[in-house]
């Protein structure tokens, strides 16, 4: 038994068919618990008032936005090295989810920033990096859409994901040098004592778990759709040949 067994699309479909309903239900429950807890059972912040509660959407969405790209990079590398189609399709499936998460992070940040910083948008390094990340997602999705041959598309988008990762990281540090930021430091960290107060911390962690479950659910669901679309194409091609 190894994880590579599920690189077989049939096995993947069978497993995901069984797991998906549970995954979906679990992510719905965890999200519901985290958001209700966060929105209705935490106190208002001393200075920020109730706007602080955007954190329960903003921070998890931002984490998913970055990690979705990392997941796409890993899946692309697996495709390039081991040629597992499920891996390539999972990368394709994750891209729109990641792009939407980036958008959510940007929009919730703007909604929070208007009363707090007095502006919807500032050219702060973090905000700028997220906008750049969004551009990278758009390019990646557009390249997938533009190429007809699925294997060529998978190969080229994988190369783009690798080169894009290098330049996305470069842009992040370039933006840091370019402008001083308004954005506060990390809300969560493993090694520092300084992070959000406990009343916010536990619902936030729950929300992050919920978002991760949601992300996995969506990616599995979309990968299944891609596999089905691929099968449909093969069937149609066979039919037109006969």
């Amino acid at each position: 038994m190894s994880i590579w067994e599920y690189a077989n699309p049939v096995r993947f479909m069978r497993l995901s068919d069984r797991v998906l309903p549970w995954l979906a239900a679990l992510s719905a429950i965890v999200m519901l618990v985290a958001l209700v807890w966060g929105f209705f059972f935490t106190p208002d912040d001393y200075r920020q008032g109730s706007t602080v509660k955007i954190i329960f959407i903003h921070v998890p969405a931002a984490m998913i936005a970055i990690n979705a790209w990392v997941m796409m990079l890993v899946a692309s590398l697996i495709w390039l090295v081991r040629r597992h189609h499920v891996s390539a399709l999972a990368a394709k499936a994750a891209a729109p989810v990641g792009a939407v998460m980036t958008m959510i992070a940007l929009v919730t940040g703007a909604v929070w920033g208007e009363p707090m910083w007095g502006t919807w948008w500032a050219w702060d390094p973090r905000l700028t990096s997220f906008l750049i990340l969004f551009l990278f997602y758009l390019g990646y999705i557009a390249l997938w859409a533009a190429i007809d041959n699925p294997d060529t598309a998978a190969d080229l988008t994988s190369v783009l994901a690798i080169v894009g990762s290098v330049f996305a990281v470069l842009s992040r540090y370039a933006a840091l040098i370019w402008n001083q930021g308004l954005h506060q430091g990390a809300s969560l960290s493993m090694d520092r004592a300084e992070h959000v107060a406990d009343v916010f911390y536990y619902p936030l962690v729950t929300a992050i778990v919920g978002f991760i479950l949601l992300f996995v659910t969506l990616v599995v669901l979309r990968t299944r759709t891609e596999i089905r679309a691929r099968r449909l194409r093969a069937l149609l091609a066979r039919e037109s040949r006969e």
């Binding site: 758009l138 390249l143 783009l160 080169v163 370039a174």
Partner: peptide
Amino acid sequence: LTVGIRRGGLLLSLLVMPLYIPTLI
């Protein structure tokens, strides 16, 4: 990347622009 695509000019710009950011900055 876009050599095989007909009328790939716009896509080419979309792909290349984010890569230009560090150089531009």
